[in-house]
């Protein structure tokens, strides 16, 4: 049985959480976020990120500022809002609980 689809679904589930986690360290340009997600093999193509960023911004979790770019159009630098920080803390807790639950189930004899 091919596990790719399952893995993709798992990645899809944690993608928004990963974006918030990256932005909790510092404000980032979309390509910086993409590079980190690609490095962790969470996404493969860049186009995935943009609708998620828009959605999180519209949900009040992110805000952005414009900065001039040496190449191409001006860039949006995203950062967490206060709501985004609270939301991330809840996701942190939920993730820990999820990992613990999965581990409990997986490790039960």
């Amino acid at each position: 049985m091919n596990t790719d689809n399952t893995k993709a679904q798992m990645r899809k589930g944690i993608l928004e959480y990963c974006i918030l986690a990256i932005l909790s360290r510092s404000s980032c340009y979309a390509v910086d976020i993409i590079n980190e997600l690609k490095k962790a093999e969470v996404i493969v193509v860049e186009g995935t990120l943009y609708p998620l960023l828009t959605r999180q911004k519209n949900a009040g979790l992110l805000s952005y500022r414009w900065e001039e770019s040496p190449q191409g159009p001006p860039r949006k630098y995203y950062e967490l809002t206060e709501l985004g920080k609270i939301y991330l803390k809840e996701l942190d807790r939920a993730w820990d609980e999820l990992v613990e639950s999965v581990n409990q189930i997986r490790d039960r004899k």
Partner: peptide
Amino acid sequence: MGAPEEFYD
């Protein structure tokens, strides 16, 4: 960028 159908969300 990927094709639009590859954007999973």
